[in-house]
């Protein structure tokens, strides 16, 4: 496979996986938790590499998921103590964990390639060069295997628990009385977000992961009122943005991650203006129609 097609496919897979989970995250009003998680998994990965004595894919995932869940648990605990608000809790927990991660890295792993800029920027440009090796045989680009696997897991999660997730999101009290506690679903969703974020952030960088979790679902939210459509539209917009962004980056010879997020941002801007139901032009039009006419 050519380098471009590997990058296109990787971007599309990350975008689809993020949009799938991001739709639920958005309607649950937890968008900034994805930002917190995608930064706070750094110490988890560092600790896992330390225990595994070197960069190890599986260990990295376990460490990241643990750090992600720890972030959620800390934020919830702070919030429940009622000493600080939810957003303050997020702002206290994730910088602390990120700082810890940076500190440990620079103190003990100065030679490991895991610095703060790499975490934020990602390196999707290299997706085609990092091959998955089993023994001596190469199975092709590792990012494709990882993100393809994650997308399947996310898809299975959403399909299997769709009804439960929907109920826990829109009517937590009923969900609890029917026997599936919303808290468990909440943690399960956040665990999926953490694992997807770690796969995504090694491929495209922490900030693009946040963009792909939030922007396509937010765009879809301006275009529809129904959850199934919201999810389908998010995935479509995310994948479309990833492909268009990658092509634009190659045409303009600039950062792929940057271009993908810029394109999704552009699509959001268009929806903001032209959405048939929520768009600003539509609303201005409606307002103008209500004005009394001159005699």
């Amino acid at each position: 496979m050519s380098s471009l097609s590997v990058i296109l496919l990787t971007g599309a897979l990350v975008a689809a996986a993020c949009a799938l989970l991001g739709s639920f995250v958005l309607v649950r009003k937890m968008a900034m938790m994805t930002d917190a998680i995608s930064h706070a998994i750094l110490p988890g990965i560092v600790a896992a590499y330390f225990l595994a004595k070197g960069p190890n894919l599986i260990a990295g995932f376990v460490g990241a998921a643990a750090a992600g869940l720890l972030t959620v648990a800390f934020v919830e605990a702070l919030q429940r103590s009622r000493k600080v608000t939810k957003e303050a809790a997020i702002g206290i927990v994730f910088p602390a964990l990120f700082a810890l991660g940076v500190l440990i890295t620079s103190r003990f792993f100065a030679d490991v390639h895991l610095d703060a800029d790499a975490v934020l920027y990602g390196s999707i440009e290299l997706a085609a060069e990092d091959l998955l090796l089993v023994g001596d045989r190469s199975l092709g680009p590792q990012a494709l295997w990882v993100m393809g696997g994650l997308l399947l897991v996310d898809l299975a999660f959403v399909l299997l628990l769709y009804k439960e997730l929907k109920l826990a999101t829109f009517d937590p009290a009923l969900a609890a009385s029917l026997g599936f506690p919303p808290v468990w679903l909440h943690y399960a969703l956040m665990a999926m977000v953490s694992v997807t974020a770690v796969g995504g952030f090694t491929a495209v960088g922490a900030v693009l992961v946040v963009a792909l979790f939030i922007v396509p679902p937010a765009t879809a939210f301006l275009l529809t009122d129904r959850l199934p459509r919201l999810i389908a539209l998010s995935v479509l917009l995310g994948v479309g943005g990833a492909i268009a962004g990658t092509l634009a980056a190659f045409a303009l010879d600039t950062s792929v991650a940057g271009a993908i997020a810029s394109v999704t941002g552009l699509i959001f801007g268009l929806a903001l203006l032209f959405s048939p139901t929520q768009g600003l032009l539509r609303r201005a039009w409606r307002l103008a129609a209500q004005l009394p006419r001159l005699p």
Binding site: L26, K29, M30, A31, M32, T34, D35, E87, L120, Y121, V207, L208, V210, A211, F213, I214, V215, A218, F221, A249, L252, T254, S255, A257, G258, A259, I260, A261, S262, T264, G265, F268
Partner: peptide, 17 residues
């Protein structure tokens, strides 16, 4: 929080380009 995330990620990544 959605608006925060949108501005944060899109501006930063545009800056990266």
């Amino acid at each position: 929080d959605a608006a925060l995330g949108i501005v944060l990620a899109v501006f930063f990544e545009f800056g990266l380009t």
